[in-house]
Write a protein that binds this DNA or RNA. Structure first.
Lengths: 220, 220
DNA sequence: GTCTATAGACGGATAGAC
DNA sequence: GTCTATCCGTCTATAGAC
């Protein structure tokens, strides 16, 4: 608890609809919003090389500043992570809350899958980070927010779609739909990092359509 | 500390403080095969807490030995990883090789999915480790060879099933089948670590059947 | 085969000048 | 808002005794 500089409370990252994590990665200009640049670079490096393997020194170097500067904007390394995962989970929670108020129809199931895919695709970089750093996030003994956030949320979505006490087959198929959707989106979306890859990437809109259809098939 | 008597009956470890060296398949004694015990404990901890967050000291402690002892059996930390991932990838390569010699029929597709699921389920602990440490493995000099080849291997399996130059929709659906199968198996299989979980686990044989059916639906 | 001891490096985080 | 300097912890890995 010291003089908290700018704003460390509620994130001004882009609640609900902002794609704040963009800009050029090539150490270009972009004076002014250092905090956002830190988030962007950190997210990129964490997703590519891993959370633990990426040191604050590395992030600072890439930005042309020093480690100490990062501590002006974030109180710790984990705090940087929280800054860009918060919004993602908030959106997921929003979807869950919405789903719980809907009637348990097939149309609701379709809508949930649709919205879920939207969330994943819009926060693809964050999702990639979460997916690739599961082990690190689990061990994170922050106390504040245990990162066992995946399972509970997935189970929530599954139950909303299948209804309570659904047979194993239904639960597995719905879970598979969610997994297949998100993972496929990652696999066929161009990675920010992997630059010299064969690139099996597929057009976003087409991919979205294919994935949604596939998820529907699984739940139907 | 831990003044470990230089001479303790080779039968029991942890003189006065064995902590929790539980875990250990039945069948015979654990004596003699320290190397295997190291692999087992390391795999478990790497999967649960993450590769980087798990120190050799931690592994050694759990086994009732010292770090130095580990270096007698493995030449480095990464070498431990290699020791238990090697077999997994070899099996995947075997499947790919086998698949390439088969006629491109629907039956072959089914067989590949079936065998793939078998490999994943039998090496579930290793798969879990790989899945949760993707980022770490990517950044690793040694791991790059391993995990960065997860993509190529997946692509290989996809191409075998869809045939060359298949349309995006087919490729995505087959990829989804593979992802859904493996990830679902993990999700509904009791985690070696998570002990106090709600446990949404499902019987192995039943799970296997459900997952295979689902994968077939996706590729069919 | 296992231990003690330690080298050697690097990480996160803080203090205080400017 | 950023920097220099530094503290302190932990880690991998090695050397050499038993």
């Amino acid at each position: 608890m010291d003089a908290v500089p700018p704003d460390q409370g509620p994130e001004e990252f882009g609640p609900a609809h902002a794609d704040s994590v963009h800009a050029d990665s090539a150490a270009g200009g972009r004076r002014g919003d250092t905090r956002a640049r830190i988030q962007q670079v950190a997210l990129e490096l964490f997703a590519e090389h891993g959370y633990e393997r990426t040191s604050l020194r590395e992030i600072a170097e890439r930005l042309g500043v020093t480690k100490a500067a990062l501590y002006y904007h974030f109180k710790s390394k984990e705090d940087i992570v929280r800054s860009f995962t918060e919004d993602y989970f908030t959106r997921l929670d929003g979807l869950i809350a919405w789903g719980r108020e809907q009637p348990p129809t097939a149309h609701t199931a379709h809508e949930i899958l649709d919205r879920y895919i939207t969330i994943v695709m819009e926060g693809s970089e964050v999702f990639r980070f979460l997916e690739r750093n599961q082990a690190s996030l689990r061990g994170s003994e922050d106390g504040k927010h245990r990162f066992e956030q995946f399972r509970p949320r997935l189970n929530a979505l599954i139950e909303i779609i299948t209804g309570p006490d659904a047979p194993p087959r239904s639960r597995v198929r719905v879970a598979a739909a969610l997994f297949a959707a998100s993972t496929s989106c990652m696999f066929f979306t161009r990675d920010t990092s992997d630059e010299g890859e064969p690139s099996t990437a597929i057009d976003r809109d087409e991919l979205r359509k294919i994935v949604l259809e596939l998820a529907d098939d699984l739940t139907g």
